[in-house]
Write a protein that binds this DNA or RNA. Structure first.
Lengths: 275, 275
DNA sequence: ACCTGAACACCGTTCAAGT
DNA sequence: ACCTGAACACCGTTCAAGT
């Protein structure tokens, strides 16, 4: 069915976590084993700091090495490629998302899944906005690092309690978390742009709107934007965005509830179903 | 309130469409005016072709210039920076999304907004998957090119007919189209990865799953994945993804309907509201 | 008005060599 | 086992110069 001859060609590289060199390389007796005090954890931590501070555009193997007091080539002892490094940094970002419960599904009956879902979505958003460079990487890599997996597990555990069927759960997960991903990606980049321009979000927004107004070609659309802005109840850019995010999540929760009710109906109507 | 001294520092660069040189530079008498037959449209078209064919990683000013039979520096006559070029290519991508109606809101009563929303979402997704390099750019730039604006206008027009309040409309737009954006971004990258690895989507998926299974650390999560896969009804990777996308959109439509009903209720309960 | 060559200050990565 | 120097094949962009 597929043109894959089982075992041919070069091995497919999927992820540091899967095809990479065994992680154990870092942890020998103690870290003073390494002349420069280098190990994967330190390299990852400094990468994350640099990416936050200077942006992905200025992040290079040479820059990172300089920060670590070492030549660029030393890094290749710990990592096969720059992409590996970015995957490590990305997984470290996921570590910042506190997940509600580790494993035990005991206290689940206590707290509402709605509450937990909103909470986790808010945390995911906060992390993506705090590290805008991470969003493109989430799209790029497989996200199978331990921290990413913990996050996925938490998401699944919460959505499992909605009462949706398994395939409904998958759809709901996609709806909620791809939304948060898309929303936060755009938000994070905008925040970053403002910071780079040295403007506040409202000032930047006004500047862009002003520039649009000057373009005769876009004047019509500009009027639409202004009008919409007023209708939305005004306020700062951040207030408007906050309202949009909250409304969208409420909408998604309402959607989940409705889909669940529909599944129940069709179950009752069709009699006992298999599986 | 904001530390913006009204007029200071270097002018803020927002977008080719706003701060860029006037577009007119391209169209003089006829295009044979230009010795090399170069103009913005041709440069944009070739950029798009190269980005599709070779990926964003291999796309450079030098590579593009070579394709156009010209030195890299010639391009800077038409464009201030590589980012400008990418913004132009991105807007060209939006041109591929056919929007239902141009302006006239006449036949609106005829077709259901649900139908139109699903249709537009599907087209948006198709375009993002066809041009995976475009997704990160949507996050990066302001998207105020004429084609992007046409798309936004179409989105707004459709959602306006849901009966939601203006701020509800904004939230609904965010929920639906940020979801499609997130979903399609991940999908597009995955498709691209498979193509690069020379594997089909199922083969790549199986390869990755196999690698996960070999990692003792991730074995637990792996079991979860396999289990989920079965519960979801199996089928190919593409079939499962298709089901997720459809379910999520149904969920979103249901959510819109519910939110609208709630708005109606609270309006009736509170009596006439201002605005 | 449009295009070029040379140059600047960078990249990621390889490879043989050092300790 | 860990780190380095030199080198390769690239980048985006500037700037003075050509036609």
């Amino acid at each position: 069915m597929l043109q894959e001859p089982d075992r041919t060609g070069p091995p497919v590289r999927t992820s540091v976590w899967l095809d990479g060199r065994p992680v154990a390389r870092t942890r020998r007796t103690d870290r003073t084993d390494h002349p420069s005090g280098l190990d994967r954890d330190r390299i990852t931590a400094v990468s994350l700091r640099l990416l936050d501070a200077e942006g992905p555009g200025k992040f290079s193997m040479r820059r990172l090495a300089a920060e670590l007091g070492v030549t660029a080539m030393s890094l290749y002892w710990y990592v096969d490629t720059k992409d590996d490094l970015l995957e490590l940094a990305l997984d470290a970002v996921f570590a910042e998302i506190e997940v509600p419960v580790a494993e035990g599904a005991e206290t689940d009956e206590e707290t509402d899944w709605r509450e937990q879902l909103l909470e986790l979505a808010a945390r995911y958003r906060a992390v993506l906005v705090r590290h805008p460079w991470a969003s493109p990487l989430i799209g790029k890599y497989l996200n199978v690092g331990p921290r990413s997996m913990d996050f996925s597990a938490a998401v699944k555990a919460i959505v499992a309690r909605t009462g949706l069927s398994p395939r409904g759960q998958m759809g709901a997960i996609a709806a909620v978390f791809q939304f948060v991903y898309g929303f936060s990606t755009v938000e994070g980049h905008f925040v970053q742009r403002c910071a780079e321009a040295g403007l506040g979000q409202d000032a930047y927004f006004r500047h862009a709107m002003g520039a649009i107004g000057e373009q005769p070609r876009l004047a019509g659309a500009f009027a639409g934007v202004e009008e919409t802005r007023e209708l939305r109840g005004g306020g700062t850019v951040e207030e408007m965005r906050e309202r949009d995010f909250t409304f969208a999540l409420d909408l998604l929760v309402a959607g989940i509830e409705t889909m669940r009710a529909r599944e129940e109906e069709s179950e009752a109507g069709e009699g006992p179903e298999r599986s």
